[in-house]
Design a protein around this nucleic acid. Structure first.
Lengths: 135, 135
DNA sequence: TATTAACCTACTTTGTCAATAGGTTAATAG
DNA sequence: CTATTAACCTATTGACAAAGTAGGTTAATA
């Protein structure tokens, strides 16, 4: 289950991509347009800025803007960043301690296969793909 | 992210399938074998019994047993039951109130597509598939 | 120098996950 | 019959995260 953090992050990135401009767009504007709490968005954008997916500029005329072309962002990287991880089960998360049952676990191969599927799906969709009207 | 509820439910069903017997197996045994808290398992099995995936019998010689052949259970149905839902995003859950943005949402088609993928994956794996040693 | 707007720290509220505790009912064995 | 077994049932707990709030600080521009 993807939480609001991931979904909001994605919507903000798309919102910025839609504006199609090089100037900075203030958070107030984005929050209003998307109907998301301004203060809450702040927290989410912080991560996106620190990981260089967005550039932030303070003061008058400031705001946020993309650092790359929309085609150069994958949905997977945005979600992973905002959510912390896209792993389906705890034992497949990045820093997980090795599971005691991993050698005999009948379900592990299935989870691994599914994780691969999830990865392939989200890392092959770019922001640009989502901008195009659905077929 | 699948919680312990779903993962434990699946492991219990597999455990019972592995025993390959018609007699009832007490929860104590399953819990011990799987290394899961007995009391916690009770809660999970309650759901599985009420939905007829398992049959429970009280008293001496009692316990739990499958109601069908392992090939007649899909992983999807077990997970959906234990987790409540497999929906990826809130707006695609069973009783969700219709989203205000659904007509203009750029991400909705992607979530729908992903949900379909998840469904296809888990509802085409049976308990029997998992019993076979991985290739 | 006033205003704008990102940045930063801290807090609150709500809810779920995971588990525990203890009692009640039903089935069997002696 | 009665003791034992084991499912069934209700309630409670602690920990943690999700979602959002509040208010102050820094940096840029007009």
């Amino acid at each position: 289950m993807i939480s609001t953090k991931g979904r909001y992050a994605l919507r903000v990135m798309l919102d910025l991509a839609q504006q199609d401009t090089d100037s900075f767009i203030p958070l107030d504007e984005i929050a209003e347009r998307q109907g998301i709490s301004k203060k809450y968005l702040e927290i989410i954008l912080k991560t996106l800025v620190s990981e260089k997916l967005l550039q932030g500029l303070r003061g008058k005329g400031g705001g946020y803007r993309l650092t790359r072309r929309p085609a150069a962002y994958t949905v997977g990287e945005i979600l992973t960043l905002a959510e912390g991880s896209l792993a389906t089960v705890a034992c497949l998360q990045a820093g997980a301690e090795p599971c005691v049952r991993r050698d005999t676990c009948l379900t592990l191969p299935m989870w691994q296969q599914f994780d691969q599927l999830v990865h392939d799906f989200f890392f092959h969709i770019t922001l640009e793909d989502l901008l195009k009207p659905p077929a």
